[in-house]
Every structure is written in C-alpha cells, then in structure tokens.
Amino acid sequence: MSAPPFVEVKNLSRVFDVSKPWLNRVIEREEQKFLHAVTDVSFSIGKRETVALVGESGSGKSTVAKMVVGLLPPTEGSVTIDGVDMWSLADAEKRQALRRRIQMIFQDPYASLNPRWRVGSIIADPIRAFGLATDRAEIEHQVGELLRLVGLDPADAAKYPHEFSGGQRQRICIARALSSKPEFLVADEPTSALDVSVQAQILNLMRELQDRLGLTYLFISHNLAVVRHMAARIGVMYLGRVVEISPTQELFSAPRHPYARMLLDAVPDLAMTGRPRKMVEGEIPNPISPPPGCAFNPRCPAVLDRCRREVPELATTTSAAHAVACHAVAEGRI
C-alpha cells in the first residue's frame, strides 16, 4: 500500500438552506428551499503538489475551499489532512494542531487586511496566536524575514496597509499566511483582483515559495490559463460538481467533458492562431433548481435522453488519472 495522500477530500457536499424566514414561508405557502453548493466532490493532493479547481462563478469553488481549511462545516463527506480528519469530533485535539499547518489566501487583498493595524502586527498575529514565539525581538526578526521572503522590505512592518499597492498587499497577505509555517496553502482566486503585470509577480512568487518551502497548494481560480500555469492537476467544476479532473497537460490537449471543452474554447485566442472554436451556448442555470440528471444538459451539444434522468458519475477514462462525469464519454460517443 502506498502512503495516503497528504490532502484527501472525499465525497464532500454542502447544502445551504436558502428558504425565506419561517413565518414568510407559512404566509406565502412556500416550500423550504435548499441550494446544493457542492455535491460529492472528491480529490487528493500529494505533498508539494498543486491541485487547482477551476469553474465559473457559483460553481462551488470557494465553498470547497472553506470546507477544506476548516472554515465551513460540510453537510457530508470528509477532509483528511496528513491523516487527521478536519471535521470529525474525535480528532478535535489533533485538529487544533493541524490549524497551524493550513493557511488560506483570499482574492481581495484590500478587505483581508485590518486597516488599523501596522503590517508588522498583521504578520505577527498568527505567530502570537499559535504561540510560535513570544519574545518581541524574535517575533520582529521573523516578521522581517517574512517580508523579505515575499519581496518586501523589513522596514515595511511599520507601515499601514493603505500605504501599499494591491500587489504589495497580496504579498503582505502571503507573508501573514506563511508566518505560522504552514505546509498547506489554500489560495482562493489570489490574483483575480490584480492587474496582469502584478498577477505575474504573485504567481511567480507563489511558485518560488512552493519550491523553497515545500508547500502544498490547493489553487482556485476562474481563469484557465492561470490554473494551467500553476497546477499539476486540475478539477473542472460546474454547478457544485467536479465534471472532469485530469493532469494539466491532458486537460488542455485532450479535454473530454463537453463543458470543459467549451470552457477552453471560450478562452480568448491571444496567440491569434485562428483556432476553430465553438461558442458556449446558454447560461448557467439557477443553482436552487438545477436541471435534473446532468446539470449541463440544457447547454450540451451531445445531450441524449439519459442525460436528463441520470446524474453521470465521475469515472476514469483511458488514463487512470483522468476522470470525467459524462454519459457520452462513458458510452464512447464522444
């Protein structure tokens, strides 16, 4: 038996109750409404590996991220990190120790830094919270080193967040995330609010840090080119489910799921090769009342009756590492 993967996400689901308040429901005779934000998502991440989730807005990426780092309890399923179940009560003590080893980076570097704290205190916060150092001089030293690590100046510790540009603020967020010496970073759209030249700086920095510190990443983005650049494996999400998961190279050279293909075709053709492309038709359905069967069926060019009745299971294709949830693929029709 090989060792279990560093991060293992199994059959993860999250349902939100989006009903109106009870009294309104009774008066307006409405049923309770549930939104299936994430359904039956499974994947694993090896140590020092980057796995990415990609999908359009509302596909459930952030909800997965929050469950993986322990910010949001799953409705069903499990997240196991280095053998410890994030959400089982039995592992409560171990989980506390695990917290330090997992950190998250968010999309908005403006909203995620307290404007009234100096950068030094922001970065030192996890060091203090996890009791990693208590000596003031030692903490200051560590903060200085972290600032240097992310390409800022140790003297920046004395400044406030508003004195920095968006890209510099994201560097501060990364320094803060690294201050508890984590092994696993979950980055939810870390560059989506940044200009491309600054995005390149942050993506390069994240890759350098991964090499230097041996980090494991779950990288989330709506941008296919960005995930291609960052990840070894990619899961494509649609309406809460992973519809295709594959090594990066294979996903881009031979995408199988009709949605993944369309998503690739929709990426603007910067090389101006004039490659033939098919337009994605229609819009993402309302997640509260998704179509029955395969949720992609109203937009799918390969749809058959079965697709409107049966949810396709994620099943491996010719390559064991490449799984697709599509009846047409399973039947060998496409």
Binding site: G167, V196, S197, V198, Q199, A200, R228, H229
Partner: peptide, 24 residues
C-alpha cells in the same frame, strides 16, 4: 512586451512568467 509576457496562456510552456517589477 512586458504586459504580453506577463499573461499566462493556455498554449504556453508553463515557465516562469515575464515579470514587470513594481507597479504603475
């Protein structure tokens, strides 16, 4: 040129992106 090199592409090599130091 810097701007173009900074954009990750779906055809690219996956190498380090060209990086323009600093910001506007």
């Amino acid at each position: 040129r810097g701007l173009m090199g900074a954009i990750p592409s779906i055809e690219g090599t996956g190498d380090r992106l060209t990086q323009i130091p600093g910001s506007m």
